[in-house]
Amino acid sequence: MNIFRLLGDLSHLLAIIILLVKIWKTRSCAGISGKSQILFAVVYTSRYLDLINAFISPYNTIMKIVFLAASYGTIYLMYMKFKATYDVNHDTFRIEFLIAPAAVLALIVNHAFEPLEILWTFSIYLESVAILPQLFLVSKTGEAESITSHYLFMLGSYRALYIFNWIYRYYAENHYDLIAIVAGIVQTVLYCDFFYLYITKVLKGKKLQLPA
C-alpha cells in the first residue's frame, strides 16, 4: 500500500458516499445516470467475485464489500425508492455498446483464459468506459449540479491517483499490470474535459454549465 493508492481508494469511497448522501438528502436522483450506476455494479460484481477464493487483506475485503453494497444501494435508490425523480428521458446511452465490446476484448486480450481472470479483465475494460453514460447525460442536459460535479471529480481523481500508484509500484515493487494501466489511462483521459470545466467553473463557485 502506498500513499497514491490509499488516496485513490479514499477518493473512490468518497465519490460513492457523496452520491448516496446526495440522493438521500435531496430525495432525488435527478442528473445522475442510472446506466452508469448499473455499469459500475456490473464492474464491481465481476471483479470482486474473487472475494470467494482469494484473501488479500482485511482492508481489501472490507472495501470490496462496501463498494458492492454502496453500488447496489445506489441502484435501489434510483430504480425503486426515488424512481419518480430519475431522469429517464435524458439517460439514453445504450450500455450494450459498452458491455459487448468490453466482453469481446476481455476474451481476446487477457492474462489467462480462465473464467475469473476473464471476468476480472472484463471489469477493468468496462470500468474504463462506465462513466460515459453519465458524461452523456451531463452533455445532454447541458449542466450538472455542483454536488454531481464533486462526485465526478472524486471518481476521476481515483483513477488518476491509481496511475501514480502504478508508476510507484513499477519502480518500488517491480510489479505492473499492463491491462490495468492501459485501461486506467483511457479511463482518466475520459475525465480530462470534465476536470477542466470543474477547475475553471465549479471551484470558482459557478454551476457546471456547458456552452450551448
Binding site: 481508494d9 473512490h12 474473487d50 476480472w120 500508484n165 513499477y170 510489479h175
Partner: peptide, 10 residues
C-alpha cells in the same frame, strides 16, 4: 525485470 502483479488492488 518487473513482474505482472496479482490482482491485489481495488
Amino acid at each position: 525485470q518487473p513482474q505482472q502483479h496479482p490482482h491485489d488492488e481495488l
